[in-house]
């Protein structure tokens, strides 16, 4: 790994600040019984993540996060929650038993331990092929012309053009699918 570039204290402070907000909001999100409240906490997580994206030099992604995730997807969620009127207490009894929680916590910790173990920098270095690492490091070291969007747009429309086009097909299918699913059956079949 390269020498740490995130040196400034203010930077570190900001990073930890938004990280803790994200974490706390996530915990709050997952423990809310009320779905609307949970959704609002999730929006909070996403905002915090958007801030972290900016700190990680991914300004375009941060914008997308705010626009697409918080702006579009979460609004749709809230919309559906309201539509189905899920705020009622009768719908809130969705938690499993005590043992379910304990078990879930245990499994979650196991997963966390494993992911953390994998996240160790030595492990990451080991997992990334050296030639790719060298290439990527070289690419990261040379400043790219085109501002903040250019570095993302260039590979998106060059190397990953086919995947990009395929996502448009995926979106089309999703549109058709949701329309069909959401359509009310008029015939009494």
């Amino acid at each position: 790994m390269q020498p740490n570039q995130f040196h400034s204290l203010a930077y570190s402070f900001g990073f930890y600040f938004f990280g803790l907000i994200a974490l706390a909001s996530a915990v709050a999100f997952v423990t809310r019984k009320n779905t609307v409240a949970a959704a609002m906490w999730l929006v909070n997580v996403m905002f915090a993540l958007a801030a972290l994206y900016v700190m990680l030099d991914a300004q375009f992604i941060a914008t997308m996060q705010v626009l697409v995730y918080t702006g579009a997807i979460m609004v749709v969620f809230l919309f559906v929650i309201m539509l189905l009127n899920l705020g009622h207490p009768s719908e809130l009894a969705d938690a499993r038993g005590k043992w379910g929680y304990v078990l879930a916590l245990f499994v979650g910790l196991a997963l966390l331990a494993e992911v953390m173990a994998l996240n160790r920098s030595s492990t990451i270095d080991k997992m990334i092929p050296p030639d790719l690492a060298a290439k990527a490091a070289a690419a990261a070291a040379t400043p790219v012309a085109g501002g903040i969007i250019g570095p993302v747009a260039a590979p998106l429309f060059k190397e990953y053009l086919l995947a990009f086009e395929l996502t448009s097909v995926l979106l089309l299918a999703a549109i058709v699918g949701s329309v069909v699913l959401g359509k009310r059956r008029t015939d009494a079949r």
């Binding site: 499994v107 196991a110 997963l111 494993e114 992911v115 173990a117 994998l118």
Partner: peptide
């Protein structure tokens, strides 16, 4: 979801250890 997760943990475990 449980079954899936147990599978994931097993596989990740295999990678990790």
């Amino acid at each position: 979801a449980w079954v899936l997760l147990i599978g994931v943990i097993t596989l990740l475990g295999a990678f990790t250890f």
